[in-house]
Design a protein around this nucleic acid. Structure first.
Length: 819
RNA sequence: GCCGAAGUGGCGGAAUGGCAGACGCGGUGGUCUCAAAAACCACUGGGAUAACACCCGUGUGGGUUCGACUCCCACCUUCGGCACCA
């Protein structure tokens, strides 16, 4: 042991030292062909807002801990980082402060990269990607064109969601909440009719519903499943009386066709205008106008089931099963965006139809009952439950499931319907009327139509001399020259698409690009992709459940179908960390004044302490409130760990058992190993705290001069390495060990050392603990019971009573049941 | 309304059928100091007691079990997600 005195651990100094040394020695460099099985650990890349907040630390520190742990376990770990650099804040800053979004973004990135370095992650910055780099977004454009060629990218004129604050359209996933507000800024969206680009994610709807190859949180699986919203049923075509037109509806209950007593079209349904009779024209026009106004302003305020409104259009449809003339109505409870925008109304067995029929005195017929005999039972409310068909001709008596099948067969025979599946999922709208994104690489030519740019014209970059005005039109459209070009096919005059892509495009495939960020023969190097993809563990927030996490699965499947990747899913395992709240238990926000500044904390306590505390707060997946006093605990713990190793005790005369220390060491290895491997960082740290507490006591005993002490302290450094990488490295160095602690193998524990010579066993009488006995851990049942019954306290409780039963759980307890 | 998760000391949490409250924060008392800070030591769920014994205790009410924070049923509360999806 050196005679040097280490009296204070100076986190700032030590951390700065190791940051430099690590970077100089390149211990975190990506080694694509290095030894060990590959492990690709990925954490969601940050947006370069300009400042790293505590939530970033919470997401990244523990991810880094697990990645470091895997590396010490012998895996060749890739744990990259980059920046999701396109997006509105940069452009809004441009408008507000007259700053170039490019400059704003890239200077933020430089600043944040330094903040990220502070955390102490094992990032190889040579692998970084920045999505706003032309060498990156060029491949967004390449993918777009590939998808266009395969019909997976298409342009459509339709009613779309518009955020009046962000001044752009949004994808359906990006409109949230009851009031249908913009996911980004919270402003309620409106509707606009626009010509926009879509990615055909619905082509993959069924495959996206298959989660069998994923180890993802149940919550996310459920959210995606609900979002995709598959429902099975039939499409049925109704003739319109005295018209050549037909109306097709989607129903999940073809078995209730005999109960369809009217039909309802969405007010926006294209046939409304043609079918409305002259007498009804005025009423219908007024209703349609009102519905349009409502949808634009407040959409459907879903005051559950209340006040369903509608008007008849004067036309009638023919119910194909019984040739009944049923009136056609329009009502805004039927949505033009779902199914065919038209329904057959079965008031007897659908709550909404029942409410509507009740309001407008339309006939209600029972066609499902609990038993055939109940065919005439009155209906006082809708009965959507399954049963048996009644009043339904050839399906009478059939249970609902069989009845559905029978009717579908009949419809198919008649040629008026077929089995059909409907999804709630809509295609992904990716056009954005903004500047700071990937330009859409398409050209519109009067002669040749819509033409993709040839590959040698990629990347199509953004002009820098742009006037940023929140006009609702893309600044690219207002640029004097940018949009004007020549047609790649005929060479004639043509115009570019002036919208840019949704920034969720950037993050849909970025994990592939990290492997070869400067590769220029394709989106990524296929050899590296072959070895390193898919991602093994992906960590990040759950707020992306039906946006990024759905888009990236879709994108991956497209890449697979393009032959770029092999697996079926992009990220094997997903862990969602929780959210760090302010001390007041509210979401951190500047306006609430409850924001915690990680830079300040790192300066005061050290990055190690901040990391450790964040992991110690509680289960990572749960998040929780910050506690500015709470960080003192982990800070003290690290300081004590340091002192346990370096402080020279005044005396080591007190006797102690080195074997007991060895057992403690090995038990700690087991607990920490189990904790980190199941992302239960808090219990791993608690085990280390106990260990350090023990070491603090034992350092003033004779064990300090034994091999057991050396084993304990080196093990401490190793176990601490993934959690608090700086202090672990410093301890490692002080212990005189060679190389970096981060290049060492994770310690193994010896099972034999986990066993105590003698254990304390609680003895219960009738399920209540009354005594404790000392026995050998492997003592047999008879021995244990004998020892228990011989115990003085046990005899007091059993005296004069009959022993009915004796339960011995080896190593855990004894229970004696008496009467 | 539907779906999902969660309710444990003053606080964050631990224990997933076997000693409830590990570990940490906070608190109380003490040591050191001229004093303070830091550090260290002891105690810290409630009742009761001089102290022990003992009794109660994991949202509420039932149940299963030798034994339940843990499993089952019903309910309450909180937080998320979806919400006229035919």
């Amino acid at each position: 042991m050196s005679s040097k005195r280490y009296d204070r651990y100076d986190a700032a100094e030590v951390e700065a030292k190791w940051r430099e040394r690590w970077e100089a020695s390149g211990i975190y460099r990506f080694q694509p062909n290095g030894p060990g099985p590959k492990h690709y650990a990925l954490t969601m890349l940050p947006y370069p807002s300009g400042n790293l907040h505590i939530g970033h630390w919470y997401a990244m520190g523990p991810s880094d801990t697990h990645a470091r742990y895997m590396r010490m376990r012998g895996y060749n770990v890739f744990f990259p980082m980059g920046f999701d650099a396109f997006g509105l804040p940069a452009e809004n800053a441009a408008i507000k402060n007259n700053l170039d979004p490019r400059h704003w973004t890239y200077s933020n990135i430089d600043y944040m990269r330094n903040q990220l370095r502070t955390i102490g992650m094992m990032i190889d910055w040579d692998q970084q990607i920045i999505s706003a780099d032309p060498e990156y977004f060029r491949w967004n454009q390449w993918f777009f064109i590939e998808m266009f060629k395969r019909g997976l990218a298409y342009k459509k004129f339709s009613a779309v969601d518009w955020c009046p604050n962000c001044n752009t359209t949004l994808a359906r996933e990006q409109v949230v909440g009851e009031d249908r507000h913009c996911e980004r800024c919270g402003t309620p969206v409106t509707r606009r009719d626009l010509d926009q680009w879509f990615f055909k994610i619905t082509d993959y709807a069924d495959e996206l519903l298959d989660f069998s190859q994923l180890d993802w949180p149940e919550r996310i699986v459920t959210m995606q499943t609900n979002w995709i919203g598959r429902s099975e049923g039939a499409s049925v075509t109704f003739k319109v009386a005295d018209h050549d037109d037909t109306i097709t509806v989607f129903t999940t209950r073809p078995d209730t066709l005999w109960g369809a007593t009217f039909m309802v079209l969405a007010p926006e349904h294209p046939l409304v205008a043609q079918l409305t009779t002259p007498e009804q024209r005025a009423t219908v026009d007024a209703y349609v106008a009102e519905a349009t106004r409502k949808t634009e302003i407040e959409r459907q305020s879903t005051e559950e089931g209340k006040a369903k409104t509608g008007v008849p259009i004067g036309a009638y449809a023919i119910n194909p099963v019984n040739n009944a003339r049923i009136p056609i109505w329009i009502a805004d409870y039927v949505l033009v965006t779902y199914g065919t925008g038209a329904i057959m109304a079965v008031p007897g067995h659908d709550e909404r139809d029942f409410a509507f029929a009740s309001t407008y005195a339309l006939p209600i017929v029972r066609v499902v009952a609990e038993a055939e005999a109940d065919a005439a039972a009155p209906l006082t409310e809708a009965e959507p439950a399954a049963g048996v068909a009644v009043n339904s001709d050839f399906i009478n008596g059939l249970p609902t499931a069989a009845a559905k099948q029978r009717v579908i067969e009949w419809l198919e025979q008649q040629g008026i319907g077929e089995r059909a599946v409907n999804y709630r999922l809509r295609d992904w709208l990716i056009s954005r009327q903004r500047y700071w994104g990937t330009p859409i690489p398409m050209v519109y030519c009067a002669q040749c139509g819509t033409v993709p740019l040839p590959e040698d014209q990629l990347p199509l970059t953004l002009p820098s001399d742009v006037d940023f005005k929140p006009t609702g039109e893309s600044p690219l459209k207002l640029h004097p020259t940018w949009r004007f070009t020549t047609c790649p096919e005929c060479g004639g005059p043509a115009e570019r698409d002036t919208d840019t892509m949704d920034t969720f495009v950037d993050s849909s495939w970025y994990q592939c690009r990290y492997l070869s960020p400067h590769y220029d023969k394709g989106p990524f190097d296929p050899a590296l992709a072959q070895k390193w993809l898919p991602v093994d563990i992906y960590t990040g927030g759950a707020e992306h459940a039906v946006m990024h996490l759905l888009y990236t699965r879709f994108w991956w499947k497209v890449m697979r179908d393009l032959g770029l990747v092999q697996a079926d899913e992009p990220m094997q395992r997903l862990i969602n960390q929780g959210v760090i709240l302010g001390e007041d238990n509210n979401k951190m926000s500047k306006s609430k004044g409850n924001v915690v500044d990680p830079d300040m904390l790192a300066a005061r306590y050290g990055a190690d302490a901040v990391r450790t505390f964040l992991m110690f707060i509680g289960p990572w997946e749960q998040g929780g409130p910050w506690n500015s006093q709470g960080i003192e605990g982990p800070a003290r713990f690290l300081d004590r760990a340091w002192r346990a190793v370096v402080e020279i005790p005044s005396s080591t005369d007190a006797p102690a058992d080195p074997e007991a220390l060895r057992r403690t060491t090995h038990r700690t290895v087991k607990k920490v190993t189990e904790g980190i491997s199941r992302f239960s960082f808090n219990t791993a740290i608690a085990a280390l705290m106990e260990f350090v507490n023990d070491l603090m006591k034992l350092r003033e005993t004779s064990v300090r001069d034994t091999a057991a002490w050396v084993e304990a302290t080196t093990t401490l450094a190793l176990l601490l390495a993934p959690i608090a990488p700086y202090i672990a490295e410093e301890i490692w160095e002080v212990l005189g060990q060679d190389g970096s602690v981060h290049l060492q193998a994770w310690p193994e524990y010896d099972e034999a050392l986990l066993v105590e010579d003698e254990i304390e066993l609680p003895v219960q009488i009738n399920g209540k603990i009354r005594a404790k006995i000392m026995v050998a851990p492997d003592a047999d049942e008879a021995t244990v019971i004998a020892a228990a019954l011989a115990d003085e306290r046990v005899m007091e409780w059993t005296g004069g009573k009959t022993i009915v039963k004796q339960i011995v759980v080896p190593g855990r307890l004894v229970n004696i049941v008496v009467k």
